[in-house]
Design a protein around this nucleic acid. Structure first.
Lengths: 221, 221
DNA sequence: CCGAAATGCGAATGATCATTCTCAATTTAT
DNA sequence: ATAAATTGAGAATGATCATTCGCATTTCGG
């Protein structure tokens, strides 16, 4: 049944068995997510500029009039997808790096990212991000801020290890960290596991890179 | 003066001082190059889908009617740009890897690529390639063939070094080579030199990676 | 020098796209 | 119960885009 409040059955289904009525805010959030998921699929398939709003509407099972109640423009959808991805990344990263010895922490962080990109098939979407960042001011800003924050997290983490004398880096961390990030990014964005390089091989590569760049001293437990 | 054969002065200018009249084929080649250069600027600025044919025409100082005498479609321009870039890369690479000891050869090859991307500001265009490769079948094919050929070149080069006992790689070259390529690509596409990591630092990183992955034995001269 | 082929211009075409508008159905608050 | 606010559908709008067309000019082979 189509109503002004959408496909009620679908919404109830999504919320699950508890049967509780959905508040206005909850319903709104569900619709927003529905649009974002549909848009991600379209963008990955056709690119940001290649995907039309009408396609996104079809994928989300929603009319243009309805969709525009939730996002003021196509650009706004793109920005929200970028921002959400950024939030996810930073959360995962900050959590990871609080534990473990420094090499294993870095390897684990890198491998979690690489595995995530592989498992969610995010390569195409990431390629679109990069391309869009070279031309949309707002997306570029989101992307650069993200990079800066990640760099900050690594700098803190490795800086502390350096203070404790656990590593003897090839050179100053301010230059080494961006280099490490580029390397990890290169591996992740190429989706090596999908191209015949098994995950354990990838991990060996990552660990080797970390050891040769950071040169652990053996001082850690 | 505008003539049916275009801005004659401009063409003569381009050909230089020899004053010789241009053959039909030469003039055609010049026009093709003019379009390709204009298109590259537009694509890097706006993306493949974002750049309009009218923009490319304006950038090339040419009417749509004229432009379509040289390329049957926008897609054809994109494909030619990709193919030309591929040809350049492979030429450079094959030449480089015939000389030098294996580590220095690899470092030199990687650094030449990294320097090229940095100096020609190719990052934006490369990002557009990647994005386009995820959605256009023909561009994807060109891109994959390119990757395969580069992989083949590295495999030959390192395979020979392995036979001669000059290296003791971390694991089989079939998996190691794609990993090395991803790492170099990550460094190049991020344009580290433009982001505060000096070129000599980048070279140190690349050499360290090569040594730790390939483990030279000292058997070479 | 003549006719055919090549080249160029720029207006026209038809499709597509992001966005808006109108109106109806539904919910919520009072 | 009723007014106000929210949500939705889908047609309409105006812009933009890739491509084509008609026609003029130039080049080249003979």
């Amino acid at each position: 049944m189509k109503t002004a409040f959408g496909n009620i059955e679908m919404l109830l289904e999504a919320e699950g068995e508890e049967g509780r009525a959905l508040s206005r805010a909850e319903r709104r959030e569900l619709q927003v997510q529905r649009i974002l998921e549909a848009a991600k699929r379209c963008f990955a398939r056709e690119g940001f500029q290649g995907a039309s709003m009408q396609q996104i509407c079809a994928e989300a099972n929603m009319s243009p009039g309805a969709l525009y109640r939730y996002f003021v423009s196509k650009e706004a959808i793109i920005e929200e997808i970028c921002a959400a991805a950024r939030r996810d990344d930073e959360e995962k990263l900050a959590e990871m790096l609080t534990k473990r010895n420094v090499i294993e922490g870095m390897v684990f962080g890198a491998m979690t990212h690489i595995r995530f990109v592989h498992e969610t098939d995010a390569c195409a979407l990431i390629a679109q991000f990069h391309a869009e960042a070279t031309r949309s001011e707002s997306v570029r800003l989101i992307y650069c801020n993200h990079l800066a924050e990640v760099r900050g997290i690594f700098l803190n983490y490795l800086g502390a290890a350096l203070e404790r004398g656990e590593i003897d880096p090839l050179f100053e961390l301010e230059a080494l960290v961006p280099a490490l990030m580029s390397i990890i990014q290169g591996i992740a964005n190429n989706d090596l596991p999908a191209n015949g390089v098994a995950l354990d091989k990838v991990e060996t590569v990552v660990r080797t890179v970390m050891i040769s760049m950071l040169r652990p001293t053996g001082k850690a437990l």
